[in-house]
């Protein structure tokens, strides 16, 4: 007997204005076919003062619409304010997703989720975190299917999740690349990353599409489009997929994936649907196949 595969909307990784965030989540609450929504600033602590005051109203809005709301914590906290925010997020009373082990003391004794920025590369690490209360783990984006299968099989009590849609979060840095490109320092960045709500494309000197920057984060230029058939997911042991928010029609993305997971659309139809959204990047899915992450989606 299989339970329905979960579909999550991950945290917004980009520097979106309060208005954009409010509008975005209102539509998600009303129309998106996802059962779980992550809120929280994961990438840059400097953005938090602008978004933190939004979360209470959005939590209410989304909860009222029947969505489970999870608070995702900062992936690279280091100053006292950021560390305090990690603690606060874990103590709100909602389930928290930790993206750095800094959050472990704050979730002690509570069930929590583990985000893709925590290094879970094997069943030993997963078992360790499960022993501390992790009930779900979104695995690192570069983890090949062979590893996913082994980890999931070893811990049937944990809900494993895989990053399925959006630019892949590949790296974090102490340095802000948006600021560096603009000739600014991180401490006086003027929040220039807000000009690129899907990240700024990074091309090679030969004009190949390659990466995208988002403040201190580097993402893939390509859009991950992991579109597994239900039986393939079952073989992997993955019980939840994650969609990462972009400026494209995320409601449409959620419906495409829901139909795929419910067996109402096949992979080719889902990919065709994603292509029709005119995404600002090519579709890739190499990581899930144990290949370079930049490997293009092979059309069925």
């Amino acid at each position: 007997m299989m339970t329905k595969t979960g579909l999550s909307l991950g945290p917004v990784l980009f520097n979106w204005s309060a208005d954009r965030l409010r509008d975005f989540y209102a539509r998600i609450a009303d129309e998106a076919d996802v059962d779980r929504v992550h809120l929280g600033e994961v990438v840059c602590g400097k953005r938090q003062p602008f978004t933190d005051r939004l979360w209470p109203e959005l939590i209410d809005r989304l909860t009222a619409a029947g969505k489970e709301v999870v608070l995702s914590t900062l992936a690279l906290p280091y100053n006292p304010r950021e560390r305090a925010s990690v603690r606060d997020f874990c103590e709100v009373g909602l389930v928290a997703e930790i993206n750095d082990l800094t959050a472990l003391p704050a979730v002690a004794g509570k069930p929590f989720l583990v985000g893709p920025f925590v290094n879970v590369y094997n069943e030993g690490a997963a078992r360790f975190l499960a022993g501390r209360g992790a009930t779900g783990i979104c695995l690192p984006v570069e983890l090949p299917a062979a590893s996913v299968t082994v980890i999931a099989a070893a811990l049937p009590e944990v809900e494993f999740e895989q990053f399925a849609f959006g630019r892949l979060p590949l790296a974090l840095s102490g340095r802000c690349y948006h600021a560096r490109l603009a000739g600014l320092h991180k401490d006086g960045c003027q929040f220039v990353c807000d000009k690129d709500p899907d990240g700024l494309a990074v091309d090679t000197l030969d004009g190949q599409r390659f990466l995208a920057i988002n403040g201190i984060q580097t993402l893939s230029h390509g859009f991950e489009a992991f579109c597994p058939a239900p039986d393939e997911l079952a073989r992997l042991g993955v019980r939840r997929l994650r969609l990462s928010p972009h400026t494209c029609d995320m409601v449409a993305v959620s419906r495409l994936y829901r139909a795929l997971l419910d067996g109402k659309a096949d992979r080719a139809e889902t990919l065709a649907g994603l292509r029709a959204l005119n995404l600002p990047g090519e579709l890739v899915d190499g990581f899930s196949r144990g290949e370079p992450g930049s490997a293009r989606v092979e059309m069925a």
Binding site: A75, L76, F117, N119, Y121, P140, V141, E142, L143, P144, L168, L170, A171, L172, S173, G174, R175, F210, L211, T218, S220, G286, F287, G290, E291, P292, G293, S294
Partner: peptide, 21 residues
């Protein structure tokens, strides 16, 4: 390394091999 070490998959995005893998 300009990237936070242990948190970087740039190399595997291009080549399939990375420090963590």
């Amino acid at each position: 390394c300009p990237m936070t070490e242990g948190r970087c998959s740039l190399s595997s995005y291009a080549t399939g091999k990375s420090p963590n893998l």
